[in-house]
Design a protein around this nucleic acid. Structure first.
Lengths: 160, 160
DNA sequence: AATGCTATTGCAACATTGTAGCATTTACGT
DNA sequence: ACGTAAATGCTACAATGTTGCAATAGCATT
């Protein structure tokens, strides 16, 4: 989904993002800063496409490959988290101290992905002997509040 | 993962598969029958690649696109279920009456996907107002019993 | 068993998502 | 300001999936 944040919003208050990067021993670059800030103000996990559009909306030049690598690095550093959507594209969200592991809701009508902070999938899971659990990914599918309201009121925001 | 079922095993007892297809108003074709039977005897969800290899092992000619379309049809008819792996490839399993909704375990070391029949992710999930739940997909990540045994005993069966 | 209709197939071409290699640029410690 | 490794920005490629369309083949009917 194309998020149209107001121009300049991504550039404001970039102190935290820069520090985040520096604290992890990485170089503070245009793309990394912009990606972190876009993710920080995003209400939902963003795909590569989303991020590319967000950066373009802020007139931040970026390369497709650089975006991939910036996100790989963020995930590697534990700054961002990668979640698998039902389409085969990754989505990313910043790791916040308060919301450690939560489930995601994927609206099959409009394609939006929403974070469900209250649901912690990793708890209360028992595995067979010998299996080691690293993390659990819970994705709920259905219709979101906006799409589920009226039977015919599909308000597809134009994703894929 | 390449499953090497004994030759002919997929072709035997194909009565049920044919009936399944016919009961859903579809034409009984070589590829559909073979796919259903491969999925029925598979111990774990299969990717397109797996299925292609399984059909090839049984000397069943098949086209890549036909395979995709056969699986699409099976999912559409509710005969098979599509699950998203952590790589961006779909995996498929037959819908069995006894094991309705269960979780999956994805071994991050060897790539194997295992069905966890005992875990029913859709139960005990509370959504915000207005949200309609269709289905829940729970994927656990970690190391399976074989891979987790010895620290260095990675027995990768050859899957990416 | 032959016929006819149309659901499926099989092919080629394309779309999307993600990676690899490598020369060039840039962040940042000195 | 300088030097150097880290990142970038290309281009090319790989993997996965989709579309269009002519040819084939199920299956109901004769």
């Amino acid at each position: 989904m194309i998020m149209s944040f107001s121009k300049g919003s991504v550039r404001s208050g970039n102190r935290a993002a820069k520090d985040l990067i520096a604290d992890h021993g990485g170089r503070v670059t245009r793309t990394r800063v912009a990606v972190i800030e876009a993710l920080q103000i995003a209400p939902a996990p963003m795909s590569h496409e989303d991020l590319g559009a967000a950066l373009a909306a802020d007139d931040i030049p970026h390369d497709r490959v650089t975006l991939y690598r910036a996100l790989d690095w963020l995930v590697e550093q534990g700054i961002a988290r990668r979640i698998a959507g039902s389409d085969r594209a990754w989505r990313f969200e910043v790791v916040r101290p308060d919301s450690h592991r939560h489930a995601h809701f994927h609206c099959d009508r409009c394609g939006r992905v929403i974070c469900l902070e209250s649901l912690q999938p990793s708890s209360a899971v028992s595995l067979p002997d010998g299996y080691q659990l690293d993390r659990a990914e819970l994705v709920l599918h259905g219709a979101c509040a906006t799409c589920g309201d009226g039977p015919g009121s599909d308000n597809d925001p134009g994703q894929h």
